[in-house]
Design a protein around this nucleic acid. Structure first.
Lengths: 249, 249
DNA sequence: CGCATACTTGAGCGAAATCAAGGCCTGTGG
DNA sequence: CCACAGGCCTTGATTTCGCTCAAGTATGCG
C-alpha cells in the first residue's frame, strides 16, 4: 500500500495538498483531501487532465469574456474574482484561497476575471475533460454540487450586504466572516491578516476606499476591533462585531 | 410503449410539465423535460419522494431558519426568494418561475424565504431522498450542477448591479434581463408583464419604492420604455435599454 | 360610494461619494 | 546615512444621489 508521500512523488500534482478538497462545514471548501483511495491508473488519468501552476501576484489567470478552457483549484495564496463595467467600475465577487474552486460559475466564456493578490499555486483542469473526471470519480461531482450550493448561499448573503446594509455593517460583516474563516481554517485568533488592499475591500463591499477607511476607524473608536500598524486587524469584541454585522437586536 | 399523457395519468406528478427541466441556454432552467425515458418503476419511485402542491399568492413555502426538508421545482406561477434583517430591511435574491429550482442554496436549514407572488404550482422533493434520486437518475445530478453554475453567474451579475450600478442602470438591467427571459421563454415582445409590485422591485434592486418609480419615469421620459396603465412595461428601444444597463459606450 | 392598496411626484435631508490634503512605510539612489 | 518618490492609507470639506417624509392620483373591491 502506497504512502501519501509516495503518491505525491509519482504525480506532477502535489497530492499532499488537496486536489479535490472536501466541503468543511461552516468554512466552505477547504483542506480535506478526497484522494486517499486513488489507484495508480487514477493518478495517471488525473495527471493527464490537470496541471499544477504558479501565478505571480498581480497576474490574472482568468479574464472575463475569454474562452473558459480551465477550471481551477487553489492550493496556496489568495486571488480575487471580479467583474468590471466599461467605465472602470469594479465589483469583486469574492476572495478565494487554498481549497477553493474557481470556474464553477462559467459558461463557454468566463463571466468574471481572476487575479492573484498574492503568489498563487493552483491546480488547473481542462474543462472539456471534466465530464470524464466526473464519470471516473462520481464523488467529485457530488462534492462540486455541494460546493456550488454553498457558494450560492454565500452569494445571496452578499446580495443582502450590498443591497441593504450600511457601510459599518458591511465592514463588520466582512471582518466577522473573514475571522471565522481564519479561526476554522488555521487557528490564530489574535491578529487577522488581510491580504487584500483597502481598494479591494471597497470593490468587494460596494463602497469607496475612503468610506472603508472611515468605517474601520469607527469600529476602532467603538473598541470593537484594533487596527495594527501594518493595516491588519484584530477583533477585540467578536460578539459586538457580529451584532453590528447582523444589524442585531 | 407508453405515451407521455398516459404516464402523466399514472403519476400524482404531472409529467406533462417539467419535473426536472433542462437548462435552456441563455434563459436558464426552463421548460425542457428530462422524463421521456422513464420506466414504470422509476415513476413509482419519483411518486414516493415527490409531490405536487399548490401555494396560494402571499403564502410562503420555505422560511429562513426552518429545517430544510424540501427541495422545489416550480411548475407554474412566480415566487420571490428573500432574506431579511432583524429590523425589517429585506433583500430579494431572485424571482423564480416555471422550471426554476428552489432549495439548491440550502444547508440543513433554509438560508432564505420563498413566497408566492402569484398562485404557484410546484413539485416538492424530500431532500433526504435526493441522494437516492441522483443515483437512480445521474442525469439529474449533472443537470443540477449546470443549474447551480448558471445561478452563480446570475448571482455574481446581481452583485455587480447592487454594488456598483446607479438606480437607472439597475432598473434598465432588470427590465433588459426580464424581457430577454420573456422573449426566450414564451414570446410576445410588445408588453412585458411584471407580476411583482414596485416594493418587490425595490427590494430586489437595493432601492426604495420611490426611487424605482422615479427611475421608471426617467426611462419613460427618455423614450426607452413605456409604462402601461396597469403598471406593466413595454420596451420601446431595446438597444438603448441594454446600453444603459451595461453603463455602455 | 368609501376605503384600501399600489403607484407617482415633490421637498428636504443624510449617508456615502468625490475632491483634496497630509501621514506613514518601503525602496532606491545619491 | 539621508533625501526623495511612490504606494497605500487616513482624515477633512464639500457635493450628490438616493432616502425619508409628505401629498396626491389611480385602481380595485366590498
Amino acid at each position: 500500500m502506497l504512502e501519501q508521500r509516495d503518491r505525491a512523488h509519482r504525480s506532477p500534482i502535489n497530492l499532499s495538498e488537496a486536489i479535490i478538497p472536501g466541503l468543511c462545514a461552516g468554512c466552505g471548501a477547504r483542506h480535506i483531501g478526497l484522494c486517499d483511495a486513488l489507484a495508480d491508473e487514477d493518478l495517471h488519468f488525473l495527471a493527464s487532465v490537470a496541471r499544477q501552476t504558479t501565478v505571480a501576484r498581480g497576474h490574472s489567470f482568468a479574464i472575463e469574456g475569454d474562452s473558459a478552457r480551465y477550471f481551477f483549484n487553489i492550493n496556496a495564496g489568495t486571488a480575487r474574482l471580479h467583474k468590471d463595467l466599461p467605465d472602470g467600475r469594479r465589483q469583486i465577487t469574492g476572495f478565494v484561497g487554498p481549497g477553493d474552486f474557481v470556474g464553477l460559475a462559467a459558461d463557454d466564456r468566463y463571466t468574471f476575471s481572476a487575479e492573484a493578490i498574492e503568489d498563487v499555486r493552483l491546480c488547473r483542469f481542462d474543462r472539456t475533460e471534466l465530464r470524464g473526471v466526473f464519470s471516473r470519480f462520481p464523488a467529485i461531482e457530488r462534492r462540486l454540487l455541494d460546493v456550488a450550493s454553498h457558494e450560492l448561499i454565500v452569494a445571496q448573503e452578499q446580495m443582502l450586504l450590498l443591497g441593504r446594509k450600511s457601510a459599518i455593517e458591511r465592514l463588520a460583516s466582512f471582518i466577522d466572516g473573514w475571522s471565522r474563516r481564519a479561526i476554522l481554517c488555521g487557528g490564530g485568533t489574535d491578529s487577522l491578516r488581510l491580504p487584500m488592499t483597502r481598494t479591494d475591500l471597497a470593490d468587494y463591499l460596494g463602497l469607496t476606499i475612503e468610506t472603508v477607511s472611515r468605517a474601520l476607524s469607527a469600529l476602532r473608536k467603538q473598541g470593537v476591533i484594533e487596527v495594527t500598524p501594518d493595516h491588519n486587524i484584530s477583533v477585540v469584541r467578536p460578539h459586538a462585531l457580529h451584532d453590528i454585522a447582523r444589524a442585531g437586536a
